[in-house]
Simulated assay, not measured.
Amino acid sequence: MAMPQRPVPPGRTPPQGAARRLARVLAVTAAATTALAITAGSGAQAAPRPDRNEVKAQVDQLYAEAEQASEKSNAAEEDAKRLQREAGSLQQQVAVAQDSLNTMRSDLAMVAAAQYRAGGMDPGVQLMLSSDPQDYLAKARSLAQAGQQRADSLREVQQQQRKLDQRRAEASGKLVELEAVRAALAQSKQQVQARLKSAQALLNSLTATERAQLVSQDAKEAQERATRGTDRIDLGNLPPSSDRAAVALAAALSKVGSPYVYGSTGPGAFDCSGLMYWSWRQAGVTLPRTSQAQAFGGQRISLAEARPGDLVIFFKDMHHVGMYVGGGTVVHAPYPGARVRYENVSAMPVAAVVRP
């Protein structure tokens, strides 16, 4: 039976066997700690990489949100241009009205000065002193008429002053509204950039090969939807609704393969509404700039009545648009990184069909 060891008094060296045992405990503890740290580090490095399909779903959502913000930005930019023109016109009207008013006031001041220099003699006294009463009465009638003209001029000055004040108030209101629209425009652009930055960060989490596969897969799926599994797109045999629609259709089809760029209206790159805007401009028709405004820029018809050249507005908030090309197919600018292409009209929820 082993004898129990007595505790070592403070300040004394422990026996040699106890020292060896202590050293072994410390070594085992250090090894375990090191192994734990390595395991934790390896676990952090071996965190599961993002799934390509999950990344695609998140990126698609961010692109949709960016497009919504982009259409708001386009609308705000158009409002800003309109308000700038209106404010400029009102300011010009104010300047012209001010010059006219200054001239009228100057004329009245000259008449008033002439009357003051004449002494303002009473007309009855002038008649009594006149050597030719008939001549005086004729002049008096002329003076009365002149007085009436001055009174009319004075009233006109007052009316011009009121109009001038109104124009100034309108111009000030337009400038205030313009500043508010510019603030909204800046906010929308920030939202677009934030969504695009987040989408790019997600894409950067994939390898270059995976990113290329993602783009290729998306284009292939769109082609399969448009061709319905065949080797070519069947656009049917319906003619465009008008000669202008035929020109717009040809213009849109000529841009298949062009890149998508937010806020662009061609001729080298487009966003969704920009492609419609540019294509119809080639036919001499100026559409509203945004998809939401384009939804109300013509005659509403049903999808069953759609003809080549008609606009198809997608999603409940109408933030996307394409051009019907026939056979249940549209041509549209889809999203950043993709190019203008064909798509089955049923690939997205249809909100409206419009014939410009």
Rank of each mutant, 00 (worst) to 15 (best):
M1V: 13
M1N: 12
A2C: 01
A2R: 04
R6G: 03
P9Q: 14
P10N: 10
P14V: 12
L22I: 03
L26G: 02
A27H: 06
T34H: 09
T34M: 13
L36C: 06
A37Y: 03
A40C: 11
A40S: 10
A40N: 02
A40H: 07
A44M: 15
Q45Y: 08
R49M: 05
D51N: 13
R52L: 02
V55L: 08
A57G: 10
L62M: 08
A69G: 05
E71Y: 03
S73H: 05
S73D: 04
N74D: 01
E77F: 14
E77L: 13
E78Q: 15
D79E: 14
A80S: 12
K81I: 13
R85C: 11
E86C: 10
G88F: 11
L90C: 01
Q92G: 15
A95N: 05
V96W: 12
M104R: 12
L108P: 01
A109Q: 01
A109K: 09
G119V: 11
G120T: 14
M121Q: 15
L127F: 13
L129G: 06
S130W: 06
S130V: 04
P133K: 09
Y136D: 08
Y136P: 00
Y136N: 05
A138L: 13
K139A: 10
A144W: 15
A146Y: 13
G147Q: 14
Q148P: 00
R155Q: 14
Q161D: 14
R162T: 12
R168D: 05
G173E: 12
K174T: 04
V176W: 11
Q187C: 09
Q191Y: 02
L196P: 05
K197P: 06
S205Y: 15
R211Y: 09
A212H: 14
L214M: 15
Q217G: 07
A222C: 09
G229H: 03
N237I: 11
L238V: 05
P239K: 00
D243W: 04
A251C: 05
A252C: 08
L253Y: 02
L253H: 04
S254K: 12
S254N: 08
K255D: 02
Y260H: 01
V261C: 01
G263Y: 05
G263H: 00
G266P: 02
D271A: 09
G274V: 06
S279H: 07
Q282R: 11
G284L: 11
V285K: 01
T286F: 07
S291G: 13
S291C: 10
A293E: 05
A295H: 03
F296D: 06
G297V: 00
I301D: 09
L303Q: 11
E305M: 14
P308E: 00
D310R: 05
I313Q: 06
D317W: 12
H320N: 08
Y324K: 02
V325S: 07
V331G: 02
V331N: 00
H332I: 06
P334K: 02
G337K: 00
V345H: 04
V350N: 01
A352T: 02
V354A: 05
P356C: 13
